[in-house]
């Protein structure tokens, strides 16, 4: 029950979905499976919330260091959950005004919208904005031309960084559109930084990324097969679980 049933479930589901690409009869089954998959994904949000709750409560009850912050997390969690589920400040759908619960839970002006707009948005956006500072510090301390490979990486980075701004026009905008040798060949303007960075992206980054993609695709295919055939059972965890 603990291992055989899950192995069977994953194999049947997986092979039905693989079959949708080849057998028309499987298409409808595949769509049903995807609809259930999406529902489980929504329940995963609830599982995530429940897990957070469990961890924070454990922290508070054990009076671990920083348990006050755990309490702050819980308060923020419950207040947001309440205003979202209770549709606080939401008006009904204008087509059906007698149905008070028919409105959009994220209506502009509602309490849940307020939490999103004025708390979630600035906090998440600023968290990511911090990365600009850390990348600049890393550029100063870590990006060293220690060998040929690192030197290539840095030179390319500099060309693309300049080529993607107006600096390319300032530095190389004056390169004439005249052939270096012969007619119809390479011109001086081909060496403008914006053009060089485009060539780097199209002719050098594309093959590099393409090879990585091919490698990943083969990796995904083999891992998927291992899971479906029951060779890889790591997702089932150990038998010691309660």
């Amino acid at each position: 029950m603990k291992r055989t049933v899950p192995l069977l479930i994953s194999a049947v589901t997986g092979f039905i979905l693989i079959g949708t690409a080849f057998i028309p009869m499987f298409e409808e089954w595949g769509n049903d499976a995807m609809a259930w998959f999406n529902l489980l994904a929504a329940f995963a949000f609830i599982l995530g919330g429940g897990n957070l709750l469990k961890m924070q409560l454990q922290k508070i009850s054990a009076q671990q260091a920083g348990w006050g912050y755990a309490a702050v997390t819980l308060i923020a969690f419950f207040v947001t959950l309440f205003v979202g589920l209770a549709k606080v400040g939401v008006h009904p759908n204008a087509k059906f005004p007698e149905f008070s619960w028919s409105g959009n839970y994220l209506e502009v002006g509602s309490a849940f919208w307020w939490f999103f707009e004025y708390i979630f948005t600035p906090l998440s956006a600023t968290m990511f904005a911090l990365l600009a500072f850390y990348i600049s510090s890393a550029a100063f301390r870590a990006f060293r031309a220690k060998n040929t490979e690192a030197t290539i990486l840095l030179i390319i980075a500099v060309i693309v960084l300049l080529g993607r701004t107006y600096a390319s026009e300032w530095l190389t905008g004056g390169f004439p559109n005249e052939p270096i040798f012969g007619e119809g060949g390479i011109t001086y303007s081909d060496f403008k930084l914006d053009h060089l960075s485009q060539i780097i992206m199209d002719d050098f980054t594309t093959p590099g990324m393409r090879a990585i993609k091919i490698g990943i695709a083969l990796g995904v295919a083999s891992t998927s097969l291992k899971v479906l055939l029951g060779v890889d059972r790591s997702y089932l965890g150990s038998d010691q679980e309660a």
Partner: peptide, 20 residues
């Protein structure tokens, strides 16, 4: 801002390498 920040970042990389 993008232009100035890119130039700053390149300067930091160059300065870091000079130190190195």
């Amino acid at each position: 801002p993008q232009l100035v920040a890119h130039v700053l970042l390149i300067s930091l990389i160059v300065l870091g390498n000079v130190i190195y």
